[in-house]
Amino acid sequence: MKFTTAPSAVEPARDFPELLPHGRTAVRLHPRRGAPGTYDSHIGGPPLWPADEAWPDCAGHRDINGRAYPLPLVAVTQLTAADFPELRFPEGTDLVQLLWCPEWHDQPHPAGWGQACRLYWRRADAVTDPLAEPPDPEEHWDHGPDMIPRACVLHPERITDYPGGEELPPALAERFGAWLEERDLPDDLTTVPGHKLGGFMNWCTTDRPGALECGACRSPLELFLQFDTAEWRLGSWGPDGAPHRFRPLEERGREPVDGAEDPAREPVGMTVGRGGHGGLFVCATDPRHPASFFTQ
């Protein structure tokens, strides 16, 4: 199924051309609950994992006696080059998988959670004997942590994303904010919400770190994947009371409900941070370096 984002209240080329050089293509993933296959791009589905490769675990756990008690990581996302050609796949790879520990550790990398949040870059046709049954999170995480995703198929939509005020040049951010205020317009143009690939993250809870650097080589970090508690927010409206821009046009005929039981608004069923969003950042020089995760 195709999902479509409504036009913004702002048309940069017409209204604020100074923004145009700062735009960047992002991919709204539009996850919806389903039964993705092993070879598909998905969130929360079965990964194409070699049967002869040990499943990774998180060593940052202890039993009641204080002894090490490793727990298997959770398969979060799988993306293919066929579905996402804009991804920078390292040479010889066409598949990337994200696994993480669903319990919060210190963040970001190189603190503890960096060791429990791992990207695996593969060549799909090299996996000739896939693992038939990956570890079931329900068997190991009996207290139901918030960061275990439900299985979702993806419906990619390319969209132009713009940085928020902390990443725009200060004078430009000030002028754009004043322009919106004068016209009583919402900012529905910058930092696209929801689950997306690339683009810019909204640093609405904490300030953006002064130096977003790779812990391995000190190259700049760039947003790879954003995970969001909700695709769009209840009570958020555009100009003249229109539905929020990021509520897909194809789903506006149904009444939204609050909470993770709404498969359109909160399809993945994760509560990120305290009901906000989080971004997985990778090294701009080599995405195989350890990733960093920030929540808002």
Rank of each mutant, 00 (worst) to 15 (best):
L29C: 04
L98A: 04
D40G: 12
P31F: 00
P263L: 08
E91K: 10
D161G: 05
G92A: 12
P169N: 02
F293V: 01
L73I: 02
R32Q: 09
V153M: 00
P156A: 04
R33Q: 06
V27N: 06
T128V: 12
E133V: 08
E261I: 06
T295I: 02
P31S: 04
P50K: 08
L19T: 06
P108H: 07
P7E: 03
M201H: 12
P12E: 06
P134G: 07
L29V: 02
R88A: 13
Y162T: 00
L95Q: 01
K196S: 13
A151M: 01
T25C: 13
W141D: 01
L280V: 07
L131G: 05
G253Q: 05
C58I: 05
W121C: 01
A216E: 15
G114H: 10
L29M: 12
R208F: 10
L99A: 06
D146T: 08
A54C: 05
L168Y: 06
A13T: 04
W232Y: 11
G114P: 13
I43N: 02
T38W: 05
R122G: 03
M147L: 15
D262Y: 02
D161I: 00
E231C: 07
E231V: 00
A124G: 11
P263G: 09
A260Y: 08
R254M: 11
T191F: 11
G269I: 00
A59S: 13
R233M: 11
T77V: 09
L95H: 02
A230H: 13
P135I: 03
G238E: 15
R62T: 14
P50T: 01
A124I: 01
P248M: 14
P12C: 03
P256M: 12
H109K: 07
E251V: 14
P50C: 01
D146A: 14
P90V: 04
G66C: 02
M270D: 04
L131W: 09
R28I: 15
Q115T: 13
T190G: 10
A81P: 12
E213I: 05
F227E: 03
W141H: 03
F176N: 07
E181K: 15
R175E: 11
A124N: 10
S8V: 05
E266F: 00
F16Y: 11
E181L: 11
L154G: 06
E167V: 04
T38K: 10
T205W: 14
G269H: 03
L225C: 03
D228C: 04
E86C: 13
V153I: 12
R254W: 14
H61F: 15
A13C: 05
M147Q: 12
D142K: 12
P170N: 08
E91H: 13
P256T: 07
L119P: 03
P31N: 05
M1F: 08
L172S: 11
E181T: 12
G276H: 00
V153C: 00
T229M: 08
N202Q: 08
R150G: 01
V282A: 05
D83T: 10
R274L: 05
R183D: 09
A35L: 02
